[in-house]
């Protein structure tokens, strides 16, 4: 890096640049200012949410009553939709993740190992839902769901089929990035030449190697399912988000508290994904 002194002399010499000789990276101060300004702007609505849950209603002033009510089980029957919605969303998340594990994962492994030529079509198919707005999907799903309702009944869990499609692109990406990082072909050939059958190869060799991708895919699917509103609301099912909208009309405080909690939960999920993904990257390199 002999060019370093020259550039820092040509441009303004600062201490930050001494550490990183020639670089397009913003200085510490620039970064701090930008992030602080944007961070504050983005924090305001969230703070407003918090502030609202602390408001004392018509009497004014601030109180913790609403939070206490939520956590002390002071929610009576009128909050039933909320519990229904939460329950439904959790069931949906589980069914969606199961669908993904049962359908998507074997397909991807199979395509990777045996039918590499199908890679492109599969990728196209899996990423397609990104381009189709959920609201458009609903229009198409409405008639499909009248059939599904006849076959499986109109239980909320059937929405998992639709959510499977919604989560498909994210799950696909998470698994795919893991799949290319692991040399599945060599691993499975090694296992096969040692006499392992396909089920053993799958269960003891491939899946353990894919666990980070699978975990990330499961988390992102859960996040997608818990945050879904469009399809549930237009097909008249109750899930967490539609319940929040419903409850917000009778008791905004509780609804807002649930919103805050759900946001925090989603943040933790994604934070965990980031951590998992980060570790995968490190172990590969």
């Amino acid at each position: 890096m002999s060019g370093a002194p020259k550039t820092s002399a040509a441009v303004r010499p600062t201490r930050a640049r001494a550490a990183r000789p020639v670089t397009a990276v913003p200085s510490r101060a620039t970064r701090a200012v930008i992030l602080a300004v944007v961070g504050v702007l983005f924090a305001i609505p969230l703070l407003a949410l918090v502030e609202f849950t602390l408001r004392g209603g018509l009497q004014g002033g601030y109180t913790l009553d609403h939070w206490i009510a939520v956590f002390s089980g002071g929610l009576d029957r009128s909050y039933k939709p909320l519990w229904d919605g939460l329950g439904n969303s959790l069931v949906l998340a589980i069914v969606t993740v199961l669908l993904m594990l049962v359908l998507l994962v074997p397909t991807m492994i199979l395509v990777r190992l045996r039918f590499p030529r199908l890679h492109r079509p599969l990728e196209f198919l899996c990423l397609l839902p990104v381009t189709i707005p959920a609201i458009v999907l609903v229009v198409g799903l409405a008639p499909v769901y009248s059939v599904i309702a006849r076959m499986f009944g109109s239980g909320t869990w059937t929405l998992a089929f639709a959510y499977g499609i919604l989560a498909l692109p994210y799950a696909y990406r998470a698994i795919q990035s893991n799949l290319v990082a692991v040399d599945v072909a060599t691993l499975s050939e090694a296992a096969r030449s040692l006499g392992a059958g396909w089920p053993t190869v799958l269960a003891t060799v491939i899946l353990p190697n894919l666990r980070r991708g699978l975990l990330a895919a499961a988390f992102i699917s859960i996040a997608v399912v818990l945050g879904e509103f469009t399809i549930a609301s237009l097909l008249s099912r109750t899930n967490l988000q539609t319940a929040i909208v419903l409850v917000s009309k009778q008791d905004p405080y509780t609804a807002y508290i649930v919103i805050l909690l759900s946001l925090v939960f989603a943040f933790l999920l994604l934070f965990a994904i980031g951590r998992i993904g980060g570790r995968t990257r490190r172990s590969v390199s």
Binding site: A223, L226, G227, Q241, I244, I259, S262
Partner: peptide, 9 residues
């Protein structure tokens, strides 16, 4: 995750 929570925020 946005959607509804953002609207309320």
């Amino acid at each position: 995750f946005g959607g509804v929570p953002l609207a309320f925020a």
